[in-house]
């Protein structure tokens, strides 16, 4: 079966600095993959390459079997046009560390914007679908609230609804709980966990080691722009092979 995400020999530079030095990994349908590693190891950059928020310089990213961002023209790698980029981005759903809800719109309109303007759904149908997902993340009662009237945890749950309502092939979480007050982390993790249990394909960049261990099918440990070790969470967390991962796990709190 075609993997939902396939990354092959991915390289990415910021100027002279190479931050991804050849990444290979796959995510199968329904799989939950956590990417862990120290700050600066390239995990967020890797995630952002999956929806073209970052360009990459070599290698391929395939979402649902489709190579994204570039195509070959007479052997040359050419960046695809803006409309194509927009269409390919909508194949993935992204949840940001800082929520990034549109502050001038209600929770409901945050969710319906993509449905009406990208998916071309009529408004009543979009509202119905948005209500379904807002209910699913426990935010239906506050659908008419502005982001400024919501707590961080509530904003993040709306942001999850906004991304998943677009029915992406895979959900990407970029340190989704790092900006939250400690007492708000649980509600967001619970929401993510329940989506995972329903079979949503997910890639999570996270510092929540306990959560990564409990919820993931596979854990990817990044170190200095490379994948140092990957495998099932039991193996990585209980019997880490590489000394780097052993050291990293010692300094991480569970």
């Amino acid at each position: 079966m075609t993997p939902i995400v396939e990354v092959r020999d991915l390289h990415k530079r910021f100027g002279e600095l190479e931050v991804l030095k050849g990444i290979d990994f796959t995510v199968a349908e329904g799989e939950v993959v956590s990417i862990i590693g120290a700050s600066g190891s390239g995990k967020t950059t890797l995630l952002r390459c999956l929806n073209l928020l970052e360009e990459f310089h070599r290698g391929d990213v395939l979402i649902g079997g489709e190579a994204i961002g570039y195509h070959l023209r007479r052997g040359q790698r050419v960046r695809i046009g803006e409309r194509e980029v927009a269409r390919q981005r909508a194949m993935t759903g992204m949840v940001f560390q800082a929520f990034n809800l549109f502050p001038h719109m209600s929770a409901l309109d945050n969710v319906t914007l993509g449905l009406t303007k990208v998916r071309g759904m009529p408004r009543p149908q979009a509202v119905e679908l948005a209500d379904h997902w807002l209910d699913r993340v426990g935010m239906l009662k506050r659908r008419d609230h502005r982001p400024s009237q919501l707590s961080g945890g509530q904003q993040q749950r709306v942001a999850i609804a906004r991304a998943i309502a677009m029915s992406p092939k895979v959900m990407l979480f970029d340190e989704a709980t790092s900006a939250l007050d400690p007492e708000r982390v649980g509600e967001v993790l619970e929401t993510i966990r329940s989506l995972a249990q329903e079979g949503m394909t997910m890639v999570l960049v996270t510092h929540e080691m306990r959560f990564a261990r409990d919820v993931s099918d596979k854990v990817v440990f990044m170190e200095d722009g490379r994948i140092a070790e990957q495998g099932p969470p039991q193996r990585l967390f209980l019997n880490p092979e590489s000394p780097r991962l052993q050291a990293f796990l010692k300094t991480s709190s569970f």
């Binding site: 927009a86 990034n100 809800l101 549109f102 990208v118 991304a163």
Partner: peptide, 12 residues
């Protein structure tokens, strides 16, 4: 971040 959020849902 808001521009990126718009890009992420596929807006041109």
């Amino acid at each position: 971040g808001l521009v990126e959020a718009g890009q992420a849902i596929g807006l041109t």
